[in-house]
Design a protein around this nucleic acid. Structure first.
Lengths: 147, 147
DNA sequence: ATAAACCTTTGAGTTAAGTCACAGGTCAAG
DNA sequence: CTTGACCTGTGACTTAACTCAAAGGTTTAT
């Protein structure tokens, strides 16, 4: 069991952020001490790490909350609804993966091209690297969500 | 050449966002009409799409600005500096890729497990799906940047 | 027994990334 | 020749995601 300060420190975030996540339904400590101290379990820590990772790859807290809430109502077995959500997120993730893979290819190309040769300077922009990406992924109806 | 409204519409963003990006050094139209209208080229559009994609995978505008500024000073051939930056970003991207791949695996597992069988309900949480991920990627010194 | 860590509530402040609204003026298309 | 799209500048507003502060009180560690 971690106390708030311990967990925060371990995950390099602010105590207030944990309280904030709690207030916003992302993560509640699974226990409280007799004196009312928040007590986070190992599992809570994993949830937190999940949240932080998800944030890192561009999910908003709202989306993360949604992901975390994916839990079949075991009584009702409302699986179909869940599957829909999951599949939507899966698409999202796959799109992000595709984008990132392009980035990776381009950056690699840049890195290789850069200091390797002498004539390198000609092709030292991500954009140029991206442009020369012949295996370009094009999404016909790619949409960006509004901020 | 696109006028501001045309480009904005094409990329489903606000005119003001384009002006905002310009003011913040992310994208300036490569031309102006005699009357002062912003005129965006095809290349400008590509830059914009790059920006939007990069945002989508969790890069901040500051990071994107940095990525866009990766351009060897062709006179000075300051390649070494560039390579350093590129390699740092590459690490970043690879970390994100690893995270996303985990997400993907988990979500797939969820999707498959969900409506497939009757005993499915037992394993219907991303966290459970993540936990059962035996090929887990663990980063010893994984750090998250402060917001 | 005292300092550091925690609690609650309330509320204000911050940063990033926009978005909206004037005001006053120019430009372009039907 | 008027309407809609654009220009500049200024500044206020918004949302997300924190972050800090203050006030008053309890708990834990040394």
């Amino acid at each position: 069991m971690y106390r708030i300060g311990e967990l925060a420190k371990a995950c390099k975030i602010n105590n207030d952020t944990l309280r904030f996540y709690e207030k916003n339904g992302l993560l509640s400590p699974s226990n409280r001490s007799d004196s009312g101290y928040r007590l986070y379990s190992e599992k809570d820590k994993e949830i937190l790490q999940f949240i932080l990772r998800a944030k890192g790859v561009g999910f908003s807290l709202a989306e993360i909350r949604e992901l975390l809430s994916i839990e079949v109502d075991k009584a009702n077995n409302a699986c179909a609804d869940v599957k829909e959500l999951v599949d939507a997120k899966l698409l999202d993730v796959e799109q992000k993966l595709a984008e990132l893979t392009r980035f990776q290819t381009s950056l690699k190309r840049l890195s290789d091209a850069c200091c390797g040769g002498e004539k390198s300077a000609e092709h030292c922009t991500i954009l140029e690297a991206l442009e020369s990406d012949t295996s370009q992924i094009r999404h016909e109806h790619h949409h960006y969500k509004a901020h």
